[in-house]
């Protein structure tokens, strides 16, 4: 298993996971700048008062 944990210190080449997070973060920011609502970027969350499984 390759270590996709984090960007390598001293290196400017991030791992695939780092790239995925930074890319999606940029997408969310750009979508907001373009006036796309939260539901439009697939980030709405359902809230419930029902007890849910937890830690």
């Amino acid at each position: 298993m390759s270590d996709e944990r984090k960007p390598t210190e001293g290196s400017d080449r991030p791992s695939d996971d780092s790239e995925a997070i930074l890319s999606r973060r940029n997408f969310l920011i750009e979508a907001a700048l373009a006036g796309v609502g939260i539901a439009g970027i697939g980030a709405s969350c359902e809230e419930t008062d029902e007890p849910q499984p937890r830690v």
């Binding site: 995925a20 997070i21 999606r24 969310l28 697939g42 969350c45 359902e46 419930t48 849910q52 937890r54």
Partner: peptide, 22 residues
């Protein structure tokens, strides 16, 4: 249900329509 937060910059939650994210 995802009971620990999985921030929206980590995954696109729309890919998992049968899982509730909080």
């Amino acid at each position: 249900f995802c009971t620990m937060p999985i921030p929206p910059c980590v995954v696109d939650t729309q890919l998992y329509p049968h899982i509730k994210f909080g």
